[in-house]
Design a protein around this nucleic acid. Structure first.
Lengths: 198, 198
DNA sequence: TGAATCATGTAACTGGTTACATGATTGT
DNA sequence: ACAATCATGTAACCAGTTACATGATTCA
């Protein structure tokens, strides 16, 4: 149900599906990726339920744009949702599942390569977040003191991204270290992983 | 596709769907929650594809147990999966979406209560992870030095949980602080949030 | 001429949730 | 007598992904 509410949240200002996708890319997608097709489907559903209304404008390029705004009912639904209990616990981390079973792979290099690659990916994401911070929140003040209520809450989600990403990077560094030491022990000591496994 | 592979990973040892659920609860569920119904459906699918095989044993209590083991093809599928690129980027954090739009709620207390509740939840999860660490990885040695390859990788996912959870808790503490200061400023200074919003 | 961007979608499928059903045994 | 636990599932539904379709304009 969350994409529904996210769209309701963004549609205080009238926007088309296509433009919403762009807004996603530079903010929401960091904690809630969504594809254009699904945005369209969800907008239709929300309109059918009376939470959004829609007006069509012809555009000079391509087909006419459908611009959505939320209704009073839409706003109420959104408010009810943010006042619910924080919905924690249904996050799924595919890469951790892969790592959990990585001893199935015969070679240590697989694990080391994997975590090194994780590090690259996390580091790229951290940089993207840092760029948003410096471009869009330069004026935040200490702890977001100088921001409006709306921007303050957005700032908080960004901060959460920054600090968990930093923690993940630290984990990567420590892990790469441990793995290298393990590999060192094995090659000077006894046998490689491929042969210890039955 | 991940649940498929997780089940393949767990089914090196023959286990029933019911028992797999219990294994989930104390390890996998921390990064990949799954429900019993879906485990059953997935087991059936994997058997149909020839990645698992299944034998039925009558039990003293309730219906006969269906015990699954992975086939050679199942093991290959698992190995191929762990050697893929780390699958990062499709995680969805509902609670961050809620927070992002929380200025929609008229009162500051909503935000403060929300983050305080997040703190409680994260803290509970951290404790659960710490308990696993102390019960199942007491013998790990520095950086998991003393663990088998298999347990070492499990240990890594646990460590990732511990350190990201710690980072989240820090964020909660800082955020609660910032919010309290904001509330202080507002009530001694000007107007409450309910009235600043149009 | 052909690729990129604008702007909309539909259809088929896969994965996950919720609600319901069955029926035996064990313990209070 | 009743709840909890053991152990299996099905059916209906909802959310998200992938592939495909349309058709105009702008730029190299």
């Amino acid at each position: 149900m969350s994409l529904d509410h996210i769209l309701l949240g963004l549609l205080e200002q009238p926007t088309s599906g296509y433009d919403l996708k762009a807004v996603f890319e530079q903010s929401i997608a960091h904690f809630w990726p969504a594809q254009l097709t699904q945005i369209y489907r969800t907008l239709n559903r929300l309109e059918a339920r009376g939470l959004l209304k829609c007006r069509t404008f012809s555009s000079q390029k391509g087909p006419p744009r459908k611009v959505y705004t939320r209704t009073a009912a839409g706003r109420k639904a959104l408010q009810a949702w943010v006042e619910e209990e924080p919905q924690v616990g249904d996050e799924r981390f595919t890469y951790l599942a892969q790592l959990f079973f990585m001893a199935e792979s015969a070679h240590w290099e697989t694990s080391l390569r994997f975590v090194t690659r994780m590090r690259e990916i996390f580091s790229g994401r951290l940089q993207a977040l840092q760029q948003i911070a410096s471009e869009q929140f330069r004026d935040a003040g200490d702890g977001g003191r100088r921001l409006s209520d709306e921007r303050f809450h957005q700032y908080l989600t960004l901060q959460m991204g920054l600090c968990t990403m930093a923690a993940r990077l630290q984990w990567c560094d420590r892990t790469i270290d441990h793995m290298k030491r393990r590999i060192g022990r094995e090659s000077t000591g006894r046998m490689a992983r491929g042969r210890t496994r039955k």
